[in-house]
Simulated scan of single mutants.
Amino acid sequence: LAPLLRRVADRTFNAISVDGDTSTNDTVLLLANGASGLDPFHDGALARAFEEAVLQVARTLALGIVEDGEGATKLVEIQVTGGATEGAAREVGRAIARSALVKTAVYGADPNWGRVLAAAGSAGVALSADKLTLSAQADGDDWVVLAQGGATAHPDEAKARAIFRQKRLRLRLDLGMGRAEAVVWTCDLSPEYVRINADYTS
């Protein structure tokens, strides 16, 4: 089960961020007692179905962590496409998810594309600004392009702000470097987060 759990965790629990910090208690376990008598790894189709089921459960639990984050009011899905590798795409997504400036912009319903691109640039991944395209979406509406080629795409500001006011929104950053992609989830950073973490001593 260990290799399966590592693959699943990389796409779920290791793809979320509330505040960028890691607790010494952060743990994920996958246990099997063999009571069913089945070994899914002896059947390719069954193994794939089993891993997909574990992935769905893990994703539900991981998103619950983000939505229940201290002071969180919004859930943000960050899709990074066009990466040279999946690992590179994931690192860019993580950098955006950890950015306090991005998270406060989301809280303030500010479609600040510059903060997102700046965060992406801090990921330690080779990027080319003129290949970047950043879009935003909420509630299944059409994607609104915020920036293209490293500069503003002159979006309709009212539409862009309306997206950022939603409780759930998506950002998509196309790196233009390849075909790999990754998804990372984060939340906004609100005054309530500061109050909660300033008012207690551990």
Rank of each mutant, 00 (worst) to 15 (best):
A118G: 14
A118N: 09
A119Q: 07
A119W: 06
A119E: 04
A120G: 05
A120Y: 06
A120L: 04
A120T: 07
G121Y: 13
S122V: 00
S122Y: 01
A123G: 08
G124R: 06
G124F: 09
G124V: 09
V125P: 05
A126T: 14
A126K: 13
A126M: 02
L127I: 05
L127G: 05
L127A: 03
L127H: 04
S128V: 15
A129K: 14
A129Q: 14
K131E: 11
L132R: 05
T133I: 13
T133A: 14
T133R: 14
L134A: 05
L134R: 08
L134K: 09
L134G: 06
L134I: 11
S135T: 14
A136G: 08
A138L: 10
A138K: 11
A138M: 09
D139E: 15
D139T: 11
D139N: 15
D139I: 02
G140M: 10
D141S: 15
D141M: 09
D142I: 00
D142R: 14
D142A: 15
D142P: 00
W143L: 14
V144D: 01
V144M: 03
V144C: 02
V144S: 03
V145D: 04
V145P: 02
L146K: 12
L146W: 11
L146V: 07
L146P: 04
L146R: 11
A147N: 07
A147V: 12
A147H: 09
Q148C: 00
Q148N: 11
G149N: 12
A151I: 13
A151Y: 01
T152Q: 03
T152Y: 13
T152G: 15
T152H: 08
